[in-house]
Amino acid sequence: MYDSLRQTEECFTLFIFCFDDLAYEMLRSLNLSNIVLITLNEFETDELKKVKKLRLETEYYWTCTPHVIRHVLDNYDVKEVTYLDADLYFFTKPSILLDEFHQSNCSVMITEHRYTPEYDQRHKFGIYCVQFMTFKSDDRGLKVLQWWGDRCLEWCYNRVENGKFGDQKYLDKWPELFTGIHVLQHLGGGVACWNVQQYEVTDGPQVCGVPIVFYHFHQLSWNTAYQFDYGVYRLSKEVISLIYGPYIRALREQIDTIVQLYD
Rank of each mutant, 00 (worst) to 15 (best):
M1N: 10
D3V: 06
D3P: 08
S4L: 03
S4I: 09
C11G: 12
F15R: 03
F15E: 02
D21E: 15
D21I: 11
Y24M: 08
L27M: 15
S29P: 13
S33P: 15
I35Q: 04
V36M: 04
L37K: 07
N41G: 14
F43L: 03
K52H: 07
K52Q: 09
K52C: 02
K53I: 08
K53T: 08
L54M: 06
E59R: 01
Y60M: 02
Y61E: 04
W62S: 00
T65Y: 12
P66A: 08
H67E: 09
L73E: 07
Y76K: 05
D77C: 14
V78Y: 06
E80F: 15
V81K: 02
T82K: 08
A86H: 10
D87H: 08
F90H: 01
F91C: 01
K93T: 04
S95Y: 15
S95M: 15
E100H: 01
H102T: 11
N105H: 13
C106A: 10
S107Q: 07
M109Y: 14
I110G: 01
T116L: 03
T116K: 05
E118R: 05
Y119G: 00
Q121Y: 06
R122E: 09
R122Y: 02
R122H: 05
R122M: 09
R122T: 13
R122P: 06
H123F: 15
K124Y: 04
K124F: 10
G126H: 02
Y128K: 07
Q131H: 11
Q131D: 09
T134Y: 04
T134W: 09
T134S: 11
K136W: 09
S137T: 15
D139I: 06
G141E: 05
L142I: 14
L145A: 04
L145Y: 09
Q146H: 15
W148C: 01
G149S: 13
R151L: 11
R151P: 08
L153E: 13
E154Q: 13
R159N: 09
R159S: 03
N162G: 12
G163W: 13
F165G: 03
G166W: 05
D167T: 12
K169A: 00
K169Q: 06
L171T: 02
D172W: 06
W174N: 00
W174H: 00
T179W: 09
I181L: 00
H182M: 03
G189M: 05
A192H: 01
C193M: 00
W194P: 00
W194S: 03
V196P: 11
Q198R: 04
Y199R: 00
Y199G: 01
E200T: 05
E200R: 12
V201F: 15
T202Q: 06
T202N: 12
C208L: 13
G209D: 10
P211E: 04
I212C: 09
N223S: 05
N223L: 10
N223T: 08
T224N: 10
T224H: 11
Y226V: 06
F228E: 04
F228Y: 13
V232D: 10
R234P: 11
L235A: 05
S236V: 14
K237D: 12
K237R: 07
K237W: 06
I243E: 13
Y244H: 09
P246K: 03
L251F: 12
L251I: 10
R252P: 10
Q254W: 12
D256M: 09
T257V: 15
V259K: 03
Q260M: 12
L261E: 08
D263C: 03
D263S: 08
D263A: 02
